[in-house]
């Protein structure tokens, strides 16, 4: 599969696109079943996900918490489901809980929308993260939990490499 494509369609938005070689019902399962989520959402080696709770219905709450086993440092996300359309769309609020890890993503919740579209057994997933403001987005980018690599940055890279 082609690597994740990341863009910043507006001042306060980050969009990540990626395709997966699997039918949408399996991708949906991997995104909503805590036992499966733990398998791939644990951000880096040495990290575990002691809390992964999901209530996948409108108004349902979720709670994710990661822990770096070596130091015991923790951080997480909490939020509420705004829209749930089986095998098609999940939209939820997201509040960063810095724990003792530090960093900030702004005080206002961001809105995360994940859409799933299956074409011939391949599922295209688009993740949009909409921050309350541009400064929240930039703070989140500095915290390192999201990404805003633009084409123009890449073209700068090419110029610098050449």
């Amino acid at each position: 599969m082609k690597p994740a494509e990341v863009s910043t369609p507006s001042d306060r938005e980050v969009l990540v696109k990626r395709s997966f070689d699997a039918p949408v019902n399996l991708v949906w399962q991997a995104y909503t079943d805590p036992a499966l989520m733990r398998r791939w959402l644990t951000a880096m080696p040495g990290w575990s996900m002691p809390v992964c709770e999901m209530a996948v219905h409108v108004g349902g709450k979720y709670r994710w918490r990661w822990r770096f086993e070596e130091s015991g440092q923790e951080f997480g996300f909490i939020g509420e489901m705004l829209e749930v359309v089986l095998h098609s769309k999940i939209s939820h609020t997201q509040i960063y809980d810095p724990g003792d890890q530090g960093g900030s993503m702004g005080a206002e919740p961001s809105i995360v929308t994940v859409t799933f579209v299956e074409v011939n057994g391949t599922t295209n997933v688009e993740t949009s993260i909409k921050f309350a403001s541009q400064s929240d987005r930039d703070a989140a980018m500095s915290t390192g939990m999201t990404d805003g690599m633009e084409m123009s940055y890449q073209s700068l890279d090419v110029v610098l490499a050449g």
């Binding site: 690597p3 990540v16 997966f20 791939w40 959402l41 980018m141 390192g144 990404d147």
Partner: peptide, 10 residues
């Protein structure tokens, strides 16, 4: 580096 984190997850 941050993009690598996303791609690692995927």
């Amino acid at each position: 580096k941050v993009q690598e984190v996303w791609e690692g997850k995927y």
